[in-house]
């Protein structure tokens, strides 16, 4: 079982390849979309590379759930994710920092859940 540091370094390399980044752009706190410029299609590329680099299987929607809290999901009211929605996210994304999100559960904040740290935690859970 690799250490967290080893996992982090490999995740970092994966993101550098997938998003054509410079070495110093990747930090644990960096958000994939806001800070690292990932677009939706990059998520699939990242999943492919993680599977290959870590020799794990990542089922569809497990790392990056699709249509989280979309308008017709029933989990959104006034531009915010409802309490039930937050509970659903806790269940679906145990690797993400939902506590921080729950303080200000605006729909547009969902993408900030996708951080480098979140990917590292997810990979660790897969390896463990």
């Amino acid at each position: 079982m690799p250490t967290r540091e080893e996992v982090y370094e490999k995740v970092k390399d994966t993101l550098i390849d997938a998003l054509s980044l410079d070495d110093d752009e990747v930090t644990p706190e960096a958000t994939l979309v806001g800070d690292l410029g990932a677009e939706s299609i990059d998520f699939l590329d990242i999943v492919f590379r993680l599977e290959k680099n870590f020799d794990v299987k990542i089922p569809r929607g497990e790392l990056f759930p699709e249509n989280l809290a979309s308008a017709d999901s029933g989990y959104v009211a006034d531009g915010k994710v409802t309490e039930e929605g937050v509970a659903m996210m806790r269940e679906k994304m145990p690797h993400a920092d939902i506590d921080a999100f729950a303080d200000d559960p605006k729909v547009e904040n969902i993408q900030d859940l996708f951080t480098v740290e979140m990917v590292v935690k997810f990979v660790e859970s897969k390896l463990g």
Binding site: L44, F48, E51, K52, R60
Partner: peptide
């Protein structure tokens, strides 16, 4: 073919 899955492939 490097990868093929439900969502797509590479």
């Amino acid at each position: 073919l490097l990868d093929a899955r439900d969502e797509g492939g590479s």
